[in-house]
């Protein structure tokens, strides 16, 4: 009795959801058919120019000292003409810009700006300098790719510097490839597009947007979701840390065991 009542109740709930959904889609269809699309079409550039305007303010306050009033660069920083919005997203969302000190390589730092502010600055620099631009502002969309393809591409193109597990590694003269665990999908995608600092640049002819999405998906999977089958990842540096643990822990245990056996005999 009780169970049939529950089933009936659930059915009722489901059907009410369905009705709401139908009604909503009907309204949506009607709106697209008869509503005023012109207003929307005008809205987007308006938003865009609004963002550019806001971005200009932020740029003049925070960035122009080094990069120049017209993105032309200066003694403190390079020109931003042609670097594109993706470079802004990479540098600012990973906290590398604004730069704290002139070092061999800009380190990752706590982020100084809101994501919305970063997008405004990016819009300003894109509008005035041009260059590569993220195909989407949405992290989930940028990481929406084929995991397996991403793995293959990652191992061919990225693993030599960033390590097969995304743990990063050393380069020449104090430079390094950073670990990828702290990078959001936007930052990963933007890095491939813009080729920041030492990193080679992967244009859309070399890695298509689909392939970049796949790589982004794989890196996020590798650094956030994949678990360590052995229990402890040991920094995922591979044989170095594993060998150290094997020697220190394993040999100590063996020596202890040997001493114990010797003491008992």
């Amino acid at each position: 009795m009780n169970s049939t009542a529950t089933v009936r109740k659930r059915r009722k709930q489901l059907s009410s959801y369905a009705v709401v959904l139908l009604a909503l889609s009907l309204v949506g269809t009607l709106y697209t058919a008869f509503g005023a699309p012109e207003g929307q079409a005008q809205d987007a550039p308006a938003n865009q120019s609004m963002a550019v305007k806001e971005g200009r303010e932020l740029y003049l306050t925070g960035c122009s000292t080094c990069h120049g009033l017209n993105l032309e660069g200066g003694s403190g920083g390079p020109s931003l003409i042609g670097v594109g919005a993706s470079s802004v997203v990479f540098q600012m969302e990973s906290g590398r810009m604004p730069l704290a000190a002139g070092t061999q390589q800009a380190p990752r730092k706590p982020v100084k700006y809101e994501i919305s502010e970063i997008d405004q600055i990016a819009a300003y620099i894109q509008a005035n300098g041009g260059g590569p631009e993220l195909p989407s502002a949405d992290n989930a969309d940028l990481a929406d790719g084929d995991l397996q393809l991403g793995g293959a591409l990652f191992r061919t193109n990225c693993a030599s510097c960033h390590n097969f597990a995304g743990s990063g590694g050393a380069l020449t003269y104090g430079k390094y490839a950073p670990e990828l665990k702290s990078a959001s999908a936007r930052v990963i995608y933007a890095a491939m597009q813009s080729g920041p600092e030492s990193m080679p640049r992967y244009g859309d002819n070399q890695l298509t947007p689909e392939e970049k999405r796949a790589i982004t998906r794989y890196v996020r999977y590798l650094t956030q979701e994949a678990d360590n089958p052995g229990g402890a990842g040991l920094g995922r540096y591979g044989p170095i840390s594993e060998g150290l643990v094997a020697w220190v822990v394993g040999i100590t245990a063996l020596v202890g065991l040997t001493l114990w056996i010797g003491a008992r005999a």
């Binding site: 193109n157 080679p200 640049r201 992967y202 244009g203 070399q206």
Partner: peptide, 11 residues
Amino acid sequence: LGDLDVGAVES
């Protein structure tokens, strides 16, 4: 030719 941007590498 043209697949690689300036600053790109390919194995």
